[in-house]
Write a protein that binds this DNA or RNA. Structure first.
Lengths: 255, 255
DNA sequence: AACAGCATTCGATAATACCGAAAGGAATAG
DNA sequence: CTATTCCTTTCGGTATTATCGAATGCTGTT
């Protein structure tokens, strides 16, 4: 069709992960099934544009500074973040919890904003993407997605047992989605990390489609049932405000 | 030469700024002097790879989620950040100041890490890039760069008067670089933002070249002369530790 | 209802990226 | 110290691929 060069370039960039942040030309070529000469052309083009940077000593390539620049720009101009920043920051500070904003992208939750800058730090890095089925944001989104899409999603992803509390049975998960809809918010008690509890509320856009979710997280002590009764309404309010700004118009009830 | 497709793709991405985060195909074509058909090919390839996202209603393109992912990954695997994270976080908390890590890239300072998550928020966004000549990190780097490179840099950039205190005279700036070398750290009192004071210390790599800098910022009350006398040695210590981890080996004095 | 402006599609052409081989370097083994 | 190996980088011919310009289709406006 069109533009395979660009597609290959993005494939190269997609190889870089937290576990393997440095790649040699020949390994990239092997991973993508391309000739080394071809790969070298792509890689050096990406280097000239600062999408990759080469360590002069080891000849290995790492992600370049231009990506940092573009990533920060995308985050800051992302409409969901722009709408959610003020209310979620306020709630997070006011309630001493960690506030997050995220979307479901390629079957994983991509955290697009977080009030916890710790989480971006190298030491405890798990990546900006987390599974959907066992996180506050993911559950909130899945609970309000069309049923067939949810089933397809659950079939595609691996329901890994992260902690002893993690729900991995599709049937029980769907029951939990129903419960989430009845409550209006998701509840995840130590299913991702043992000492982390989260509540999540979906954000809607035009035509009532879920476009993302917001969440508050903290240690188990902060999420006793009484605390949740206080937190949830505030987060629901915030999410409604964000949804409205995202173009959501609640259906009139008389229809 | 090679790979103009990729180069054009990055040119497209480079058009997106905080001031203009949304582009139409025809405007991109105009800005880059390409045919609209050609531009559409590039843009839709970038969209397929999630480097761009199209608003279905307005048909305008914005930066895509993949860039957020890659940007976060680059930040977290960036070796300077990895080495600086622990000491700068500690210092920042311990002294109630804002800690930053940055490099000089294309004549501007790119902030690669910051303990102030406020600054990434839409409301007060000035971009991850800031001028070098009037910021703590920038001054620290410039002061330790080879003289001819500094002169070339100062000739290329516009020395804008951000506040009434901003030094814009190249001669006085070079005197300040000398003073910075004598002190070992840069001092910037309200030259970028009136109510922000900063001290910056360079980070060295192999062969003694400056590879970046770290800084501490706060409001003017926190940076009285006595306070600086306490802060500076700690930041100098931290920077030396980071430099060592970056491969810097101090020259033996007996040579 | 006609128009204007834009995104998108399409086909022919010419340029460009691809491949495979070879050269150049660096590190390790003999 | 030399030989070997592995990897990066360069090079040229070929075929694929991106490009351009025009045509089509869509949307919102006059």
């Amino acid at each position: 069709m069109s533009q395979q060069s660009i597609h290959r370039a993005t494939q190269v960039l997609g190889l870089f992960t937290f576990e393997k942040p440095s790649w040699r030309v020949s390994d990239i070529a092997k991973a993508l099934g391309l000739a080394v000469g071809t790969t070298h052309g792509i890689v050096s083009a990406l280097e000239r544009c600062e999408f990759l940077a080469q360590d002069p000593a080891s000849k290995e390539y790492k992600l370049g500074l231009k990506l940092l620049e573009l990533g920060a720009l995308q985050s800051v101009t992302f409409s969901l973040n722009r709408k959610a920043a003020t209310p979620i920051n306020y709630l997070s500070r006011h309630t001493s919890t960690i506030g997050r904003v995220g979307v479901l992208n390629n079957d994983v939750v991509l955290t697009t904003m977080s009030t916890d800058h710790q989480e971006w730090h190298p030491s405890s890095y798990i990546g900006p993407t987390v599974p959907a089925f066992c996180t506050g944001i993911g559950r909130a989104i899945l609970a309000y997605m069309p049923g067939e899409e949810v089933i397809a999603h659950l079939a595609r992803v691996k329901l890994h047992q992260y902690t002893s509390k993690t729900l991995t049975d599709p049937v029980r998960l769907r029951a939990e989605f129903t419960a989430t809809r009845e409550r209006g918010y998701s509840l995840v008690y130590g299913e991702t990390l043992v000492h982390l509890d989260t509540i999540g509320v979906p954000v809607f856009g035009p035509e009532g489609r879920v476009v993302g979710a917001v969440s508050l997280s903290g240690n188990p002590g902060q999420f006793a049932s009484g605390d949740v009764a206080e937190l949830a309404p505030q987060l629901l309010d915030a999410a409604m405000e964000i949804s409205t700004h995202m173009g959501y118009r609640p259906q009139p009830h008389f229809l």
